[in-house]
């Protein structure tokens, strides 16, 4: 922030400016101290309220047992690896199906009416149905058809995730496509680019940029919902924790799984914050408001 000295030090700030810099520095230091102080007070109060509650000792023994936590960690980690694999596959599926749906919904012309209607119905249905229900229907229903042979539960879990999240992502992308100013389409078409190329080279890149924070948010949400595949019997982090809980009557493995899911989502959450902040800075050119 020290812009005065930027000019190879030949510029000495006036006494007034030095005073202002000093004042701002004191103010900054004060704000930091206040924020640290208020955070500490808040943490202490929460801690006191927790430990003073009558059942705290039992809760601590059955949810926060360090011994159990340490012993359950390897098993839960192995389970988490399953979650990560399913997530990786599902993300690709969502990207493809979501984009197709979004484009289908924005197609113009009477010929595409059935496509538009189908895509619209799809997003309506899959945004309305709870993910858990889709998991049950896909995971226990489709194998019953006996078409695909025996597939692991992870496979059906990934399919269900893709079906649900594609509907959300399609709507986000559609909002982005519609937010690209029509003059951009005109400019691209006037160069002789066809409909598809206009979409691919001009509209989609701008659309994705506009809705990146929303897409990242959906990804974070998907990272935790991938834990729901445990209801199909897939031995993921949650299922492993459940097995451990059943054999020890101690709930600490659940807490371990929860912490691992948080750790898994942290990088993406930070990345989303950073990206949004950068976009905000770019839009406000040099303002202090």
């Amino acid at each position: 922030m020290d812009r005065i000295t930027a000019g190879e030090g030949q510029r000495q700030p006036s006494a007034v400016e030095q005073g202002r810099v000093r004042y701002r520095r004191t103010q900054n230091r004060r704000s930091v101290l206040i924020s640290v102080g208020s955070t500490l007070v808040f943490a202490v109060l929460v801690w006191l309220a927790l430990t003073a509650s009558p059942g705290w000792e039992q809760v601590r023994a059955s949810f926060f047992d360090p011994q159990v936590a340490w012993e359950s960690l390897p098993t839960v980690l192995v389970g988490l690896w399953t979650n990560i694999q399913v997530l990786a596959i599902a993300v690709v599926g969502v990207a493809v199906l979501g984009s197709l749906l979004a484009i289908a919904r924005t197609l113009r012309g009477p010929l595409f009416t059935p496509v538009r209607i189908l895509a619209g119905a799809y997003t309506d249905i899959f945004r309305g149905v709870p993910l858990l229900l889709v998991l049950y229907l896909v995971g226990f229903g489709i194998p019953g058809l006996d078409i695909f042979g025996r597939m692991p539960a992870q496979f059906w879990g990934a399919i269900a995730l893709v079906l649900c999240y594609s509907a959300y992502v399609a709507e986000v992308l559609r909002a982005g496509i519609e937010a690209v100013h029509p003059s951009q389409r005109l400019a691209a078409r006037s160069l002789g680019l066809g409909y598809a190329k206009t979409l691919r080279l001009v509209v989609m890149p701008q659309a994705v940029r506009k809705v990146t924070p929303a897409l990242m948010n959906d990804f974070v949400s998907m990272q935790k919902d991938v834990g729901l595949i445990s209801v199909l019997g897939a031995v993921d982090a949650i299922r492993s924790a459940q097995i451990l809980v059943a054999s020890s009557y101690n709930f600490t493995p659940y807490v371990v799984a929860g912490v691992l899911f948080i750790l898994l989502s942290l990088p993406m959450i930070r990345l989303t914050d950073w990206y949004s902040a950068r976009a905000r800075r770019r839009e406000q050119i040099g303002g202090t408001v």
């Binding site: 005065i4 510029r11 700030p13 007034v16 400016e17 040099g286």
Partner: peptide, 10 residues
């Protein structure tokens, strides 16, 4: 209009 902060002067 205080939309930009001055680096010196008043």
């Amino acid at each position: 209009n205080l939309l930009e902060r001055v680096d010196d002067g008043q």
